[in-house]
């Protein structure tokens, strides 16, 4: 694993809209039993993401997802390996997803956090849009590369 692989892995862990959505919906449930708070309340109806927790947990989620996905796709005899998956080209649409995630993270990590309505009506739909793009590209990659669907 080279530095470039690590860099690509970190970008995909921190800026993937799917993983951020997953973090927003599930992290609290998994971290609370260990006494760790994923969010901090900053007002009556607003909250902020705990930056250090996200910094530490996001790569763990990213790596778990990579292992699960790669492990499952091994059953299709496409000869996949982790470095090969990480080396894949980043489509410009995927870069749009990364930008959307960065935009949401910037607001969520700010001192005042995000108000719940703003999160629900602006940021979550944006993240869902980014996640839909990422998921479509991922399944297209599975169809064409793993299943060989485009070669007949």
């Amino acid at each position: 694993m080279t530095t470039e692989h690590l860099f690509r892995f970190l970008i995909q862990s921190y800026l993937s809209p799917v993983l951020l959505l997953f973090y927003l919906f599930c992290a609290q449930g998994f971290l609370a039993p260990f006494g760790i708070r994923a969010f901090a309340s900053t007002g009556t109806n607003s909250e902020r993401l705990m930056g250090m927790v996200y910094l530490l947990v996001a790569p763990v989620i990213g790596f778990s997802w990579l292992m699960v996905s790669c492990g499952f796709l091994q059953s299709f005899d496409a000869g996949l390996s982790l470095p090969a998956i990480l080396e894949g080209d980043i489509h410009w649409l995927q870069a749009v997803g990364f930008l959307v995630t960065a935009f949401v993270l910037r607001a969520y990590l700010s001192r005042n956090g995000v108000e719940a309505n703003l999160m629900g009506f602006i940021f979550t739909p944006l993240l869902l849009f980014g996640a839909a793009i990422s998921a479509s590209l991922h399944f297209w990659w599975i169809w064409s590369v793993v299943l060989g669907g485009d070669s007949g």
């Binding site: 997953f22 919906f25 599930c26 992290a27 609290q28 449930g29 998994f30 609370a32 039993p33 699960v68």
Partner: peptide, 17 residues
């Protein structure tokens, strides 16, 4: 409440994967 939240999150992971 914590256990229920944990099971809820685990259920979401199982559903999504």
């Amino acid at each position: 409440e914590q256990s229920l939240a944990f099971v809820g999150s685990l259920g979401t992971v199982l559903l999504v994967s």
